[in-house]
Amino acid sequence: MNGYFTAAVAGLVAGGTYALLGVCAVFTYRLVAVVDFVGAAIGTAGAFAFAMSAELGLPLWSCTLAGIVVGGVVGGAVGWIMTHWFADAAASTKAAVAVALLVGLAAIGLRITGGQHPHAFPVLFEGSAFRLAGVEITNASLATLILALLFTLGADLFLSRSHVGLQLRALSERPMAAELIGIPVRNLSLCVWVVGGAATAFALILIAPQRAPNFLALSLLVVPALAAALIGFFRDFWATLAGGIAMGVMEGITAATPGLGEYRAAVPFLVILCVLLWSQRGVRFDDAR
């Protein structure tokens, strides 16, 4: 039993990452009504800009800034495509475009970064914060959890309390009406993509040293991110935060269970399936009656 508790604590590291990426996906969806399949790939571009800058011998702070800027720029580029070419498209079309951009960014990223050629990702926050249940919680892992909590709190307060946040909600829910009353729809949409790209890049800079150092592996973190967002039904930031952390804990427990460790990567897919089945329970019940 103690072994499972230790595995659950170890899973908090991944859970913080999933929660942060999931909250970024909810933030994008609530403001520009796009399921952000490409978000993790945008952040990965920033993370590799950070690593490649460090390989040139630049100071760590400037490498971090470079990674965040690249994430914001790539996010802005994706946002420009979505707002100028697909602003009035159906939600399914926007989702398909986002998937296509994910594939395109992954292909370009693999080419630029040398495919499976490993890159050294410096640890932004070195050292151990404390030990819990025999598991060493690093400063980087703790920073990821704190960042996920702060971004969740900030996004929630921003949308519910600020004037700009209310404008952005109007943009998402009634884009044509928002434009008619003078809200700068395209500029605000671009800002959302830039902020989301920068935040995702910083998150992946923090956790990249603990992951496989290739572009595709980091880009595919979009799967657990969207699973966490789905737990909050792409509306509730706090449910997404809790869902992401819980999913990391589930992965840790699965990894420690004999015979199931090699299937830990299937946890996000099972979560997505269960949430979708739960969301259709009313329809199935009505059909059964």
Rank of each mutant, 00 (worst) to 15 (best):
C274R: 06
V249D: 01
A256V: 07
R264V: 10
G261H: 05
A256H: 04
P268S: 11
W278L: 15
G259T: 09
C274S: 15
G259S: 11
T257P: 02
G259W: 04
F269Y: 15
G261T: 07
V271F: 04
T257K: 02
A256T: 06
A266F: 15
V275L: 06
L276K: 05
G252K: 00
V267S: 01
E262R: 10
E262T: 13
V271R: 00
E262W: 09
L270E: 01
V249K: 01
C274A: 15
T257N: 04
I253W: 00
L276V: 14
W278T: 14
G252N: 00
A265P: 10
M250C: 14
S279D: 12
T257Q: 04
P258S: 06
R264H: 07
M250N: 00
W278P: 02
T257G: 04
Q280H: 15
L276I: 12
P268A: 10
F269T: 08
A265K: 11
C274I: 15
S279Q: 12
L277M: 13
L273E: 06
C274G: 10
Y263S: 12
E262N: 15
G261D: 05
Y263D: 07
M250E: 02
V249E: 01
R264E: 05
M250F: 12
I272K: 04
T254L: 04
L276S: 10
A255S: 11
V275W: 05
A255H: 07
A256F: 05
A256D: 09
C274K: 09
L260A: 15
A256Y: 03
Q280C: 11
A265L: 14
E262D: 14
L273S: 09
G261P: 05
Q280V: 09
G261Q: 06
W278K: 10
L277V: 14
A266H: 09
P268I: 08
